[in-house]
Amino acid sequence: MSLLHINNLTMRFGGLTAVDAVTETIEPLSLAGLIGPNGAGKTTVFNMITGVYQPTEGEILFDALSIVGSNPHEIANQGIARTFQNIRLFPSLSVFDNVRVGFNNASKTGLFGSILQPGRYWTEEKEIADKIDHLLGMFGLLDNRQELAKNLSYGDQRRVEIVRAMATDPKLLLLDEPAAGMNPTEKVELMNLIRYLRDEFKIAILLIEHDMKVVMGICEKIAVLDHGAKIASGTPEEVKNNPEVIKAYLGESG
């Protein structure tokens, strides 16, 4: 059974059809890519899946349940985590606390537990702190744990965003241009990390990316959007040689 199924998904902003009747399926444990020229509607697809936008038309099924109409936090708690094209960390919180917020929903400490802080509060905090350190270590961010998120380098901020998303223990991770602003070495590291996350945490990952080396290098399946419509999908080889795709990309630069 597929993990995510979107059917005939459409988003209109006034007269503009940003996403036009897109149908796609993501399998558990898969590594998929969503590409297309600027303004093709890729981020809008993420925003609909995560409940930030309500689709104008169409269905979204996650684990066979419809999530259209759910709040973003409900969708997150069902197992869809994401990063943002324009990084959205909590700037005034430390790296550690940014990630800690991702554990909020899993935490059993309620309001009175937070205020009175009984013994089991500290036990739980310790468990969560260990998990956070484990995740931060995985991404080489352990030394930055007490730094304010806003003071980190661009590449580090992108990585903290991924760690924060992983803290919610997702089944599906959506990455919006994770390699943007990274240098070639960082990009190679990122590719390895993405594969590692999928294998280690047994999740599916869908990523939007402009860097073709990254996309072609790690994705098993790629869907291409142009002007909101899906114009192709398939393996990297199939997509690369699809005349429609070549036309869409040439059209952008020409």
Binding site: T50, G51, V52, N71, P72, H73, A76, N77, A81, R82, F84, R88, L89, F90, P91, S92, L93, D97, R100, V101, G102, N104, N105, S107, T109, L111, G113, S114, I115, L116, Q117, Y121, R164, A165, A167, T168
Partner: peptide, 27 residues
């Protein structure tokens, strides 16, 4: 105490960026 706990971080995350807070499951 609130500030140093789960709830306080939820408050501050909400203040800093509501969309990001929702995206990690904060109501």
């Amino acid at each position: 105490n609130l500030m140093r706990s789960t709830y306080g971080r939820g408050f501050l995350a909400t203040r800093d960026d509501e969309i990001a807070a929702e995206s990690v499951g904060v109501n």
